[in-house]
């Protein structure tokens, strides 16, 4: 296996701190190595972003009979980045009823992603 087979497969901009290191994911044979990070947290971030990027989804959900028409919600665990769009459509279709307390589970195990959609605030009835 020669050095020349190494190639950069992805550049990840680290967001752990404001320095913003450009971390390269480099393919060396069957391995992926990371270069350009300057701290351990940066390496962890790059590995996660390379193998399984996930995000907390924060959006709103429609409410019936609420003090406001929408309630802010989020997933209680990060979900796969590629599933965000599907999850957003699922949430858009859903309507919940007031009253609601922060932390209430509104959609359980959304799309089977092992994450619940929970209320970000209390919402009283109209």
């Amino acid at each position: 296996m020669s050095e020349s087979s190494a190639s950069v497969v992805k550049v990840i901009r680290c967001i752990v701190c404001p320095t913003g290191c450009q971390i390269q994911a480099i393919s060396k044979g069957s391995d992926i190595v990371f270069e350009g990070y300057t701290c351990k947290r940066g390496l962890e971030y790059a590995e996660q972003e390379y193998y399984e990027p996930k995000r907390i989804l924060t959006t709103t959900i429609r409410v019936e009979n609420g003090f406001l028409p929408l309630l802010p919600v989020r997933t209680d665990k990060p979900i796969l980045k590629e599933k965000l769009d599907e999850a957003l459509s699922e949430i858009a279709k859903t309507v919940v009823s007031a009253p609601i307390v922060m932390g209430d589970i509104l959609i359980e195990n959304i799309l089977g992603l092992e994450s619940n959609v929970i209320a970000s605030r209390n919402l009283t009835q109209k």
């Binding site: 709103t60 769009d85 599907e86 459509s89 699922e90 858009a92």
Partner: peptide
């Protein structure tokens, strides 16, 4: 309205 727009414009939503 916020949610209507997404449901109406992204046809099939999740399937895309």
């Amino acid at each position: 309205r916020t949610k209507d727009f997404r449901l109406n414009t992204i046809k099939g939503g999740a399937e895309e």
